[in-house]
Simulated assay, not measured.
Amino acid sequence: MDAFDNLAVILVGFQNDYFAKNGVLRGVVEEPGRVDEVLANTMNLIRKLANTKALIISTPIVLESSYRALSNSSGILDKIKESGAFSVGTFGAENIPELAEFGDRITYVSGKVGFNAFSKTDLDNTLLANSIKEVWVCGMVTSLCIDSTGRAAYERGYKVSIVEDCSSARTALEHSFYCENVFPLYGSVIESKSLVMS
């Protein structure tokens, strides 16, 4: 049995508006170079897992141009509306081109319109159909989508790990706070660089 038979890696927000050089939300991450570092680490992690049985899932957020799903928004969701981010049919809403390298090795789960990748999507059914027991969560933003998705996975009975060097917050301090104080309340914090793949 493959050591990764029951593992899923959930990629959150790997879209042009966060990761492209001209992405409208790239500046949300204040630490210089952090976005590129997260992208490089995540691509390396996927390459390590490509020949295993691990399920790799991308959960993009795509919103109607009216932003109806964000009608009562505040904080970063207001910034998404104001900037026109993740609007259906736009460059920014598209998955980053780097994921194309992996072809059908990546499963795409649509429907995400908020922080939690399980809400209003088929993510849980996809995990159940593949006998997943453990999830690793990567992406943007640590304190919002990553935390919301991690908690939701835990509440559904999955063993949860947040991949620290494949995720980012708005600031280094915020990222460290969640990794040191919040995530250990319901899961583990791991680093992709320290993972040994057979």
Score class of each variant (00 low, 15 high):
A8V: 05
V9A: 04
V9D: 04
V9F: 09
V12K: 01
G13I: 03
F14V: 07
Q15V: 14
N16Q: 12
N16M: 09
G23L: 12
R26Y: 06
R26L: 03
V29D: 02
V29H: 07
V35Q: 04
V38W: 10
V38C: 06
A40T: 13
N41T: 12
T42Y: 11
L45E: 05
I46G: 03
R47N: 10
A54M: 06
L55T: 13
I56D: 10
P60V: 12
I61F: 11
L63Y: 10
L63R: 10
E64Y: 06
S66A: 08
L70T: 07
S71F: 13
N72H: 14
S73Y: 04
S74M: 10
G75Q: 06
L77I: 02
L77V: 02
K79N: 06
I80Y: 04
S83K: 14
V88L: 12
T90E: 05
F91N: 09
G92Q: 08
A93L: 04
E94N: 14
E94R: 13
N95V: 10
E98G: 12
F102V: 10
F102W: 10
G103D: 13
R105C: 02
T107A: 13
T107W: 08
Y108R: 13
G111E: 07
K112A: 13
G114K: 14
A117G: 03
S119Y: 14
S119T: 10
T121C: 05
D122C: 07
D122E: 15
T126N: 07
L127T: 06
N130K: 15
N130V: 05
S131H: 13
S131F: 12
K133S: 10
E134K: 14
V135Y: 00
W136P: 02
V137H: 00
C138P: 07
G139D: 04
G139P: 06
V141N: 04
S143H: 12
C145G: 11
T149W: 06
G150V: 00
G150K: 00
A153I: 02
Y154E: 01
S161I: 03
V163P: 05
V163T: 08
S167T: 15
R170I: 14
R170H: 08
T171Q: 04
A172C: 00
A172N: 03
L173H: 03
L173C: 00
S176V: 01
Y178N: 11
Y178P: 00
N181T: 10
L185W: 00
L185P: 00
S188V: 01
S188P: 00
V189L: 04
V189I: 10
S192N: 07
S194H: 11
L195F: 13
L195A: 05
M197D: 02
M197A: 07
